[in-house]
Design a binder for these strands. Structure first.
Lengths: 213, 213
DNA sequence: CTAACGTTTGTCCAACCGGTCAAAAATTTG
DNA sequence: CAAATTTTTGACCGGTTGGACAAACGTTAG
């Protein structure tokens, strides 16, 4: 291999593409379960079915794997919020945002936990992105929501905290999965829990807890 | 020292009491910021102002510190839910439960993060407690809430998911504090964020997002 | 004072961990 | 086929970490 595999335009062989994917998949599994410091290169290498030096041939440092994983994650992770659009009925729009976020918690729990781990530790590696890209996006969407409020389409509240509450309630089912399943027990903790959660969240966000009439 | 300092009824000298408290306080700081595997005995010892062997004189293994911390935590952590009572107005009762939980996120963020870390890693050390003590308590309170629903005092929903959503939204302000502050920015991310959150959550849980009338 | 007991620390060790390196094996290229 | 290049691995290294230990130090009771 003549070039450094880093930098802006690294051309890669077919094997490099495949092996890097394999490693990232294994690393997602390991990092999301044990955190960054709790994971070892050996664990990731074993999960990827290769030796440690071989893994280090594709990613020179442990941090490089984590960084690559994190960059990819953020794109897909914020996709649902990006889709939140001004076209269509506001309440419907919010409801489908909540549904999409809940589906992501169901289908990509490892990604959610990887993200949660990073934030819990103080986001040492992605703080700039939070203060920059993320803040910009949220501010933008908060403005959209504010517009809906001014138009009387939804009740007036704090759009930022509304977004936080959607993140919190949906990601809870990925990040705190063990607890959710433990509390629901064997009978209610099965696959149906996400549909129950979806029904509950829809009702909560639309109507709250006050009794009708 | 003649006895082993473990077991059911370890009698301890005054110095042992004090130093153990000092260590637990330091360990809470370190564990909550770095996770279990991310924390070293040396870090804790330094934070407690003593040498590593000295710390190991009071807690023989790193795990013992974590275990002690965890046991204490769970008692205080579930106190607000225990207080949820059948006396008084249901909506008021739920509102003050939410307020208490939010205050805990504000006043004891380290405890919240310690707990979140443990759950995120799959709760290896406290799973039995979740399936036993915690499940029992939640089932009990879910029954109380169901009673309120039957009496028409609050809207009918899933009490278990209601409790999850309260946990998720309140603990979010402790566990994801970095993100919350990054998104709110310098002006709105100050101390006032908890009051804004309290106002928002109250409205969300009571009325939802549908516009009035 | 002194013996007994409780506390503290310097030193050490074995296991682990991230990363290097050179050489072998496999693959591609001409 | 043979040369060039890419991929894989065993062996190794230096630093860190959890924990052991014995000796020193401090305190308390007789």
């Amino acid at each position: 291999m003549t070039d450094t595999m880093e930098g802006s335009a690294p051309r890669r062989t077919r094997i490099q593409q495949e092996k890097r994917e394999l490693i990232l998949e294994a690393a997602l599994e390991v990092f999301s379960a044990n955190g960054f410091r709790g994971s070892t290169i050996d664990q990731i290498a074993e999960a990827a079915g290769m030796s440690k030096p071989n893994l280090l041939y594709y990613f020179r440092r442990k941090e490089d794997i984590h960084e690559t994983l994190m960059q990819r994650l953020l794109d897909t992770w914020l996709a649902p919020l990006r889709e939140l659009d001004d076209i269509g009925d506001p309440l419907t729009e919010l409801r489908s945002y909540i549904r999409r976020k809940l589906e992501m918690a169901r289908d990509f729990p490892r990604e959610s936990r990887l993200f949660a781990n990073e934030i819990l530790q103080g986001a040492p590696r992605i703080k700039p992105m939070l203060e920059g890209e993320l803040k910009t996006l949220v501010d933008e969407k908060a403005a959209v929501i504010k517009g809906w409020m001014r138009a009387g389409k939804i009740a007036r509240t704090d759009p930022w905290h509304l977004i936080f509450s959607i993140w919190a309630t949906t990601q809870h089912y990925a990040d705190f999965d063990v607890q959710v399943r433990a509390v629901l027990g064997a009978d209610r903790g099965g696959d149906g829990r996400f549909e129950d959660a979806a029904r509950f969240l829809e009702q909560l966000f639309l109507d709250g807890l006050k009794p009708k009439g």
